[in-house]
Computed example of a mutant assay.
Amino acid sequence: MISNRLPARMRALAMELKVLRAQSGLNTQKAAARIGTSTATLNRTEKAKRISHITDVAALLAVYGVTGPKRTWLLELAENLNAREWLETGDRLPHLLPALAGFEAEADVLVNFAHSIVPGLLQTPAYARALHASEDITGTDQEAMVAARLERQKVLMSPNGPKYVAILDEAVLRRPYGGSEVMAQQIHWLIGRARMPNLNILVIPFRHGGYPNPGMFSLFEFRSTPPIVYVETEAVSGFLDAPEEIKKFQGRAAKLVKVALGSADTVNFLTRMAADYERS
């Protein structure tokens, strides 16, 4: 049985199955008929309103022509739908990206806290390349990751995109990934984004002193489903969906907003920082 939460794995699987069906060119009626179930049942599966038996998921993947590592991962997801948390390490981190992009697209409000690097949704291509290069990711792998990041950023430009709040520690802006020119360009990019009606960028300056630092996280809030938190560290990243965890991160986000500069002061702060980089 599902508790009073809606597990992140279940929601991610629902999004994946819906996308795969659309890519196969089938509507829900035809796809349901292929596996011997009802259209209503498949609709509930694609809306994360029922736990799908793994045999049903395997049948759908066969109908959609999904094989190899993608099939293996989705079946593993289906086997652990009601797990308390969804954390991945090492080479398994890419499995989180489709779900992350899906939640970004569905969110009504997205709050993002970053203490060391510019959040992915706000990175310029040059900054993203410099960041990947620092992790020894180069060549075609780097370009593929940059392209994927830029694709995710389109959600902020969508008419139905989320209200986005980014809270950045000043350290994010002081570490010059790519050098002064890249950082000046990145900060001007942030200034431009800060002036968009659905975006709010806030900086916590060093002069405000210390504060409780929860590490990099994103809080997703939706119109009709429970919130989800995405946490990211060097070693482990993933999703939390337990109500007590959500409440904890909502409180942390509220405290971070209070210690940060306001919107107008942040733009002035960013303008001065960009000028500093341009002079150097």
Rank of each mutant, 00 (worst) to 15 (best):
T233R: 05
A184D: 12
A32G: 04
R149M: 07
P227L: 11
N80Y: 02
G25N: 09
Y211W: 03
M10W: 01
N198K: 06
P205Q: 03
R50Y: 06
V111Y: 00
N213L: 06
N82G: 09
F103R: 09
D56C: 05
F217C: 04
E244K: 08
E278A: 15
A59R: 04
R193A: 14
A264C: 00
Q153F: 14
L81E: 11
Q123D: 09
P197S: 08
G102P: 12
Q153L: 13
P176N: 04
T37P: 04
G192K: 15
E278Y: 14
G68T: 06
D136C: 00
V257E: 10
T140S: 07
V203Q: 05
V165E: 09
S218H: 06
V259H: 06
A133G: 04
R152Y: 10
M10Y: 04
L17Q: 07
D91R: 11
R174T: 02
T41G: 02
S237G: 12
D108H: 13
L77G: 00
I228L: 15
E234D: 10
A264W: 04
R279T: 10
V259C: 07
W73M: 15
I137L: 05
T140V: 05
M196Q: 11
P214M: 00
R84V: 13
V19R: 15
E76K: 12
G161H: 07
R50H: 03
L20I: 13
T72G: 11
V146G: 06
G102A: 09
E85S: 08
Y277F: 15
I204Q: 00
G102D: 06
T271H: 00
T55E: 04
F220C: 09
P94F: 11
V118P: 08
F220M: 12
Y164W: 10
A148K: 14
T37S: 09
A166S: 12
L168V: 07
D136H: 00
E16F: 15
M157W: 15
G65H: 15
A107K: 09
Q185E: 15
Q186H: 11
A40H: 04
I246M: 03
A83S: 10
T140L: 03
A83H: 12
P162A: 07
V155M: 01
G238S: 03
L190Y: 00
T28N: 13
V172S: 05
L219A: 02
I228C: 13
A184Y: 13
A78I: 08
S218Y: 09
A62E: 12
H188N: 14
V231G: 06
A33R: 00
I228Y: 11
R50G: 05
M196R: 12
R129F: 05
A14Y: 03
R21L: 01
I228Q: 08
L74C: 13
D265G: 09
E88D: 00
L96R: 11
T45V: 10
A83T: 09
L87F: 12
W86C: 02
A166L: 01
E16Q: 15
T45G: 03
V257S: 02
